[in-house]
Amino acid sequence: MSDPNQGEKDDVRGYVAGYALALALTCAAFAVVRWPSFNRITTLAIVFTLGFAQAIVHFRYFLHITLAKSARDDLWLILFSVLIIVLMVSGSLVILMNLRARMM
């Protein structure tokens, strides 16, 4: 007989692991800024990388987006949304930076 509470235990374990990872990544990001030991560009890159990892942790542990087949639709939607947002934000930046440069 399998434990009827097994699913619930797995859930809790997943949330705890996610919480720990999210907390660690947040602390790491703050630590890099609080105790500077790299130059500015490297620090910025590290913070961005940690932020990206943070987003993936949230998707994986809290929104249950995995590479499993059942979540494939959701994954597609997220990738699609990312594409659109990248298009909108990067396009706006290019246009407005260009205008700014030409007005200076």
Binding site: V94, I95, N98, L99, R102, M103
Partner: peptide, 8 residues
Amino acid sequence: TMGQSASI
């Protein structure tokens, strides 16, 4: 016609 460069 808002004034961005020709390449854009």
